[in-house]
Simulated assay, not measured.
Amino acid sequence: MTSYIPQLTLPSAIFNSAPTSILLPIALGTAVGFGTNRSSDQKRKYQILNQPPLHPPASVFGPVWTLLYGMMGYASYRAYRIGTSSSSPSLLLNNPSIVPTTYHTSTLYTIQLGLNLIWMPLFFGLRRPIEATIDCAALVGINAYLAYTWGTQVDKVAGWLMVPYVAWLSFATYLSAGSGYLNDWDFSEERIRMEERRKRAQGKDL
């Protein structure tokens, strides 16, 4: 378990506010998404690359991520509010370490939010599928731990709220690794041009 590191942790004022906890990851994720995919040409180039089976249409990602960001934000609010509240004597009696555990997980939550926000620039912006896949796999592990810890030691609702996020991250890891593998872990312009020529020669729509 990571230590509580104030410098790497969102302020308590954010965790103690449900609207702020929910809206912050949505706002940050939306900003990163627009900043990374602002060019329609960039999207077209990515779509030229080989995609793994079950790859959903691009229109699916925005609504799904918005919902999951909101759910994980609310989970962090519930876990922090309940876990740090001195007005929960039964929780403190059954689990004396609940307060330090909550602080530790608030640091871990903040770190995973940062890792989440850098995935899209790594994958689409810098075109580094290996690093992006490692990042995504790390997110699965961290958030599975958060879901388990919150669900078993702090608040069951917070734990369950993280489950869809962990499931989607697992699927995103598969998509990231699949795209990398099917394109020899190469998203360069040269690779894109090669795939474009190949698909045109085969009469496929781009």
Rank of each mutant, 00 (worst) to 15 (best):
T110Y: 02
F187K: 00
I48V: 15
A144V: 01
S188E: 06
L8Q: 04
I118F: 01
V163K: 04
G178S: 11
Y103N: 15
A27T: 12
L54G: 00
D135Y: 05
V154L: 08
V99K: 14
E195V: 07
M194H: 08
P19F: 13
Y174Q: 10
N95T: 13
A31C: 01
K156D: 03
T66Q: 06
Y165G: 03
V32K: 02
L23R: 08
T101M: 14
I192E: 09
I82T: 15
S76C: 14
S176A: 15
A138S: 13
S88C: 12
P25Y: 06
A138E: 00
A18T: 13
T36S: 14
G33A: 04
L161K: 10
T84A: 13
P121G: 09
I98C: 12
N95K: 10
S3I: 07
I134Y: 02
G151S: 11
V140H: 01
M120C: 08
R198P: 01
L161Y: 11
N50R: 07
Y46R: 02
Y74C: 07
N116Q: 13
R197S: 08
N116T: 12
Y181P: 04
L115P: 03
P25G: 10
L182G: 01
N95G: 02
Y46K: 01
L10C: 12
L54I: 12
A144L: 09
K204C: 00
L122G: 07
Y148T: 00
G29Y: 05
A201C: 01
P89T: 09
G70S: 11
F171M: 07
S59F: 13
Q47Y: 10
T152A: 08
I192S: 00
K156G: 01
W65T: 06
Q47A: 08
L175D: 12
T173G: 04
S176L: 05
L10V: 13
K199H: 00
T107E: 08
M120E: 13
T133V: 11
L122C: 04
I111G: 00
S85D: 15
L67E: 01
L92V: 13
V163I: 14
A27Y: 04
N50L: 04
S86L: 14
A137G: 09
G114E: 03
A18G: 09
I14E: 09
T84H: 09
A137K: 01
V154E: 11
W150C: 02
A137I: 12
K45A: 13
S90L: 13
G62D: 02
A138C: 12
P25L: 06
T30M: 04
A58T: 14
W150R: 07
L28F: 05
T173A: 15
S85C: 12
M71L: 15
D186N: 14
Q47W: 03
H55I: 03
S87L: 12
E195F: 08
I14S: 08
F15M: 06
D155H: 13
G114M: 01
R127D: 13
V140M: 06
E131R: 00
P121F: 06
